[in-house]
Design a protein around this nucleic acid. Structure first.
Length: 478
DNA sequence: AAAAAAC
């Protein structure tokens, strides 16, 4: 098996790798690092969780260690689709460049320009950025991109989804023609193919998507149910969610709940908190420092449940998530794969539950078609509409269920949320509030991230279930 | 019916 020491990385980088606890490169690393070090363009086709980030940071650090940055002329540029992803790449540089003198700046939105400007003025070796903020800096004339030696595009397919491709093309036009380009995408959509044909020159192509895997290690299940009333859908889904979480007990020690909408992220998070769960929301409307804090707490196991929009579906490095719950079926089937791919990583087992109501059904069908597998239906964990509850809940409108609801409810839709949050704890036997005593356990998980030494983890964690290992085209082509 | 990203 290849070792990092066979890859021609600089001794200082090797030392940092060793200190982080790694010995063997993952396939994408073994494939991408040698051509990157030779100065070739690289086209890496790899899913998240394959060790992709290190496959460009390691050779970059090795190459940039020689030479120094000049003011306002960064020597390399890494573009990421989301702020979190950019921050994560920056952390990766910190880890592996700790024995090397390298300066870097993180240019992302949501934070002030001032500090970013100061860093750029001093001169940086590595610029890590989201496209919008990078162009903003550029337009202010504070930033020269003519000194870029290496440019990295991370998660290109996601950039495509987010409409960043015009920005990316523009940035390609601002960096020198002679630069080296390292380009990463989980899939090769036609538009991505076009970009790579245009902007890469004779790239070394490394595809690890089809990597064989030992076992299918995500257990999937779905609760399909019909809400008793349209206006109770949210409440009842939350109840199902709680029942699912509770049924998992202590084995559910780090979970992500995905919702399709930001409002629902907030509502679900609040509701869980009220029921004693250690939960917090993350989505794009929350301010950046809050997003970072929440994510850090989740990684450090201070936070047990992360309620998220699809900001967190792809790319973020969150190790060893025990459970993924889909509060909604994602409307893009591919997102299902990304979401549940947050669990069952690096050889660990994981569980993924999806809640599906009639309005989700067509998306659910699309998901099953994509993964070429039937997701086992689970019994609704909420006792089949216990009559006692029903009576209590509906006592204000004491009438047969099938009666028409044409009589508009006196509650305005405005105070619906309020009503619901008030009534929720009442409508069911409130379980013992769950105590998340994370501090009383021997918590080593936080350290997992940089230096896991578990026997069953290969390289930087390249264990993927079979269907994830298929490219999307292959999955679609069923 | 959506999320993300620039002010």
């Amino acid at each position: 098996m290849t070792k990092f020491s066979d890859l021609n990385l600089s001794p200082k980088v090797l030392k940092a790798i060793e200190e982080a606890g790694y010995e063997s490169p993952t396939p994408i690393q073994a494939g991408a690092i040698p051509p990157a070090l030779e100065g070739k363009d690289v086209l890496g086709i790899a899913q998240t969780g394959t060790g992709k980030t290190a496959s460009f940071t390691l050779p970059m650090i090795t190459k940039l260690a020689r030479g120094r940055a000049r003011a306002r002329m960064p020597r390399s540029l890494v573009l990421c689709p989301t702020r979190e992803l950019a921050a994560q790449v920056a952390e990766n540089f910190d880890t592996y460049a700790k024995n090397v003198k390298l300066t870097k700046a993180l240019l992302i939105g949501g934070v002030s320009f001032k500090e970013q400007d100061q860093l750029i003025d001093k001169g940086v070796d590595v610029l890590i950025a989201t496209p919008g903020r990078l162009l903003d800096h550029f337009e202010r004339g504070k930033l020269l991109l003519t000194g870029i030696e290496i440019m990295v595009i991370d998660e290109a397919d996601r950039m495509l989804d987010m409409g960043f491709i015009p920005d990316i093309e523009r940035i390609f036009g601002l960096v020198p023609f002679t630069r080296q380009t390292l380009f990463f995408s989980a899939t090769m959509a036609p538009e991505i193919e076009r970009i790579t044909n245009t902007f890469l020159s004779a790239p070394a192509r490394i595809e690890v998507a089809r990597q064989a895997t030992a076992s299918e290690n995500i257990t999937q299940g779905a609760v399909v149910f019909k809400p008793s009333r349209k206006d109770r859908e949210g409440t009842e889904k939350r109840k199902v969610l709680r029942a699912l979480i509770d049924a998992e007990g202590d084995s559910c020690d780090r979970a992500i709940i995905f919702c399709n909408r930001k409002v629902d992220v907030d509502i679900v998070s609040k509701s869980l908190k009220k029921y004693g769960h250690n939960a917090a929301p993350i989505h794009g409307d929350l301010d950046q420092s809050q997003r970072m804090k929440t994510l850090d707490a989740f990684r450090d196991s201070e936070l047990r449940i992360l309620v998220a929009s699809d900001v967190a579906a792809r790319g973020l490095d969150i190790p060893a998530v025990s459970h993924v719950f889909n509060f909604d079926v994602p409307s893009h089937a591919e997102d299902y794969v990304h979401r549940i791919g947050r669990t069952g990583r690096a050889g660990r087992s994981g569980k993924a539950f999806t809640i599906c109501t009639p309005r989700d059904e067509k998306y659910f069908d699309a998901v099953e078609k994509l993964i070429q597998k039937e997701i086992p239906r689970l019994d609704n964990p909420v006792k089949t509409e216990a009559p006692a509850e029903k009576v209590e809940e509906t006592k204000d409108t004491n009438e047969p269920r099938k009666s028409s609801r044409s009589r508009s409810r006196s509650k305005s839709s405005d105070d619906k949320r309020q009503v619901e949050t008030r009534s929720e704890p009442r409508t069911e036997k409130r379980e013992e509030p769950r105590r998340d005593t994370r501090d009383n356990r021997n918590d080593t998980r936080g350290k997992d991230r940089g230096g896991r030494r578990d026997n069953n983890v290969v390289g930087m964690g390249d264990h993927l279930p079979d269907f994830i290992a298929l490219s999307f085209d292959e999955r679609r082509a069923s």
